[in-house]
Simulated scan of single mutants.
Amino acid sequence: MSISRGSQVGLQPEPGFAELTPLFQREVDLVDSAGDLDVDAWEAVQSQICQTVALVKPDGQEVADFILHIRGDEASFRWSDEPLGTEWQQRCCSGGWVGVTVELVA
């Protein structure tokens, strides 16, 4: 199993991305909100993101599970080559950052 420990890349939106902006802004708003993160709301938004877009590795294969955060023209993500379900937050949010190259597709 491969779990990316994360990456941050510049984002150059393609036509059609504008319709997804409110979804990503909801995720940013949750992360930036004062106080404790509403984990249930954040997980619901991440689930919607994962159902709306795919992360694709350079070899053309979609990753099985991912967290994607887009703020302005920067995209941050973590991914796994296997579905992780409820294990995802615990397994992906520890450790350092390792760069990977992926393509965002809608």
Rank of each mutant, 00 (worst) to 15 (best):
F77L: 10
Q89G: 10
E43G: 06
E14Y: 10
A44F: 01
V45G: 02
S4D: 09
S80H: 09
F66Y: 11
Q25F: 01
E82G: 00
H69E: 11
T21S: 14
Q8P: 00
E87T: 00
G60Y: 04
E27D: 15
L20E: 01
P22R: 05
F24W: 05
L30G: 04
V56P: 05
I49R: 07
E62K: 14
A75W: 04
V39K: 04
T101M: 03
G72A: 12
G6A: 00
G99V: 08
G6R: 01
H69M: 09
S94K: 13
I3H: 06
V45H: 03
T21D: 13
D40W: 00
W79Q: 07
D59Y: 11
D73M: 07
S33R: 04
G16R: 06
G96F: 13
S47Y: 01
V31E: 10
Q89L: 04
S76C: 07
I49K: 06
T86Y: 00
E14N: 08
Q61Y: 02
E87M: 11
V63K: 04
H69R: 11
A41Q: 05
A18R: 08
I67H: 10
L37A: 05
V98R: 14
G99T: 11
I49E: 02
G16L: 01
G60Q: 01
L84M: 14
I49C: 02
K57P: 00
E14I: 08
A75T: 05
R26N: 10
S76W: 07
Q8L: 00
R26P: 06
P13L: 05
V28F: 13
V28T: 15
E19P: 01
S47H: 10
G95C: 07
V102A: 11
F17V: 05
L20G: 04
D65G: 07
V105S: 07
Q51C: 08
V105G: 00
V39W: 02
C50N: 11
A41Y: 01
D32T: 09
W42C: 12
K57N: 07
M1D: 08
S47D: 15
L55A: 05
L37C: 11
G85C: 06
C93S: 14
W88K: 15
